[in-house]
């Protein structure tokens, strides 16, 4: 625990914030939200502009090593929850890779077409309208949000 960095502590807290919201514990959710904001503000920034290629390289490493290792352990322990998270996570990660490749080829990709993200599993989709149910976690598309910037 003592070794978690601020970015990791941020997601620990946003995860618990969402868990509290699902149990209708709004005070607890807001408190975890405050902690998440504190850690998010402290999170180290690269201090330079990142490239699509370097993000792609980390993803390649995840698919080559981290996912197979985690899958092996989850299989061995017969941990259904972990296997579920890894199955969805790996599919979404492959979508990230193809998204980055498409952006590299066409930096104007999102000028013409909207991009959507599923709040349940992270499914990322470029298209005019989202599918009726998420193809990865099968949640109805009320949970798939259009990404917009001001």
């Amino acid at each position: 625990m003592g070794t978690l960095n601020h970015g990791e502590l941020t997601v620990m807290c946003t995860n618990l914030q969402k868990a509290c919201e699902k149990q209708l514990r709004s005070e607890e959710a807001a408190l975890f939200g405050r902690l998440a904001t504190y850690f998010s503000e402290k999170t180290e920034k690269p201090g330079r502009q990142a490239t699509l290629q370097e993000i792609g390289l980390i993803i390649d490493e995840e698919i080559a090593t981290l996912y197979p290792e985690a899958n092996e352990q989850a299989d061995k322990a017969q941990d259904r929850g972990a296997k579920r998270a890894l199955l969805w996570g790996e599919k979404v990660t492959r979508l990230h890779k193809s998204f980055l490749t498409r952006l590299e080829r066409n930096p104007k990709l999102l000028d013409e077409t909207p991009v959507w993200v599923c709040e349940s599993c992270g499914f990322l989709f470029v298209g005019a309208a989202p599918p009726a149910v998420c193809p990865i976690c099968k949640v109805p598309n009320i949970k798939i949000h259009k990404m917009e910037v001001k």
Partner: peptide
């Protein structure tokens, strides 16, 4: 020039990271 992609990846990666610690 990648503001929208930034936002989409940020949201999606947040969900993936949260799911790992949730199941962890």
């Amino acid at each position: 020039d990648h503001r929208l992609a930034r936002k989409a990846l940020d949201f999606s990666l947040e969900v993936l990271a949260e799911d790992c610690v949730r199941e962890g």
